[in-house]
């Protein structure tokens, strides 16, 4: 009897313990499951936020016009970052294609614009330098013819010739130009022309244009009648 009671009492305890353990396990399991769920939901929310932000940025870039290469480079970096997310979102992926095309065309246009601006700047600087050189030559030409002193004129001829790549640089004197027909005097050379100014003591010509080499020396001088 006593043994039976003891056995009964033990069984009850075991059952109770087992039940208790089961309850704890169940609670723990449920807790673990909800933790994962929360984490997953959080990740999902983060991804959604990331996607939304990406879409927002892509939309801003899709038709944007850029005024500087720095600004363009920043957006190109942002696009690469978005691409690295490997988003599985049709809207985002469509926008990526669109933005890629826009950035590429904007880069081409901007590079062309900047190159044209640079070229224009260089040409303006060249024209300015040519204008200064033109004044120098004209000043010398005028002084050679007006000197009246052979020695002075010869010194100025030497000075003027330093502006030319060689004394034999061709000098063309345009006598007639109607747009279709251009007539010149018999071509001469720099040294002959400058000496002629000294000899005839008058300068009936003005500088129309000249060509220079890489060192800025004149390689061809075109004059026209005053």
């Amino acid at each position: 009897m006593v043994l039976n009671r003891m056995t009964n009492s033990m069984n009850k305890t075991s059952i109770f313990t087992a039940l208790f353990l089961s309850m704890i396990m169940a609670i723990s399991f449920t807790g673990c499951k909800s933790q994962k769920k929360i984490a997953a939901e959080k990740a999902q929310q983060e991804l959604l936020a990331k996607t939304n932000k990406a879409i927002q940025d892509l939309e801003a870039m899709a038709n944007k016009e850029y005024s500087s290469l720095d600004e363009l480079a920043q957006d190109e970096a942002r696009l690469n970052e978005i691409k690295s997310y490997n988003l599985e979102d049709a809207t985002a992926n469509d926008l990526i294609t669109k933005v890629e095309a826009n950035l590429a065309s904007q880069r081409t246009a901007l590079e062309e614009k900047l190159a044209a601006e640079q070229k224009a700047k260089e040409e303006a600087a060249k024209a300015q330098a040519q204008e200064a050189q033109k004044r120098d030559i004209y000043y010398l030409m005028d002084n050679i013819q007006g000197s009246g002193d052979t020695q002075d004129s010869n010194l100025m001829i030497t000075e003027a010739l330093a502006l030319f790549s060689s004394p034999d640089v061709p000098v063309l004197i345009e006598i007639y130009n109607d747009g279709d027909i251009v007539d010149y005097d018999r071509p001469t050379t720099a040294v002959k022309y400058l000496n002629k100014l000294k000899d005839v003591q008058r300068n009936p010509d003005k500088i129309k244009e000249f060509k220079t080499d890489a060192n800025g020396k004149i390689t061809e001088l075109i004059l026209t009648k005053k």
């Binding site: 061709p170 063309l172 006598i175 007539d183 010149y184 005097d185 018999r186 071509p187 390689t219 061809e220």
Partner: peptide, 17 residues
């Protein structure tokens, strides 16, 4: 007399007096 010559790779028409 009207003549032509080559200067700088282009043809120049000039009047030879």
């Amino acid at each position: 007399e009207r003549k032509t010559t080559q200067i700088g790779g282009r043809e120049i028409g000039f009047w030879d007096v």
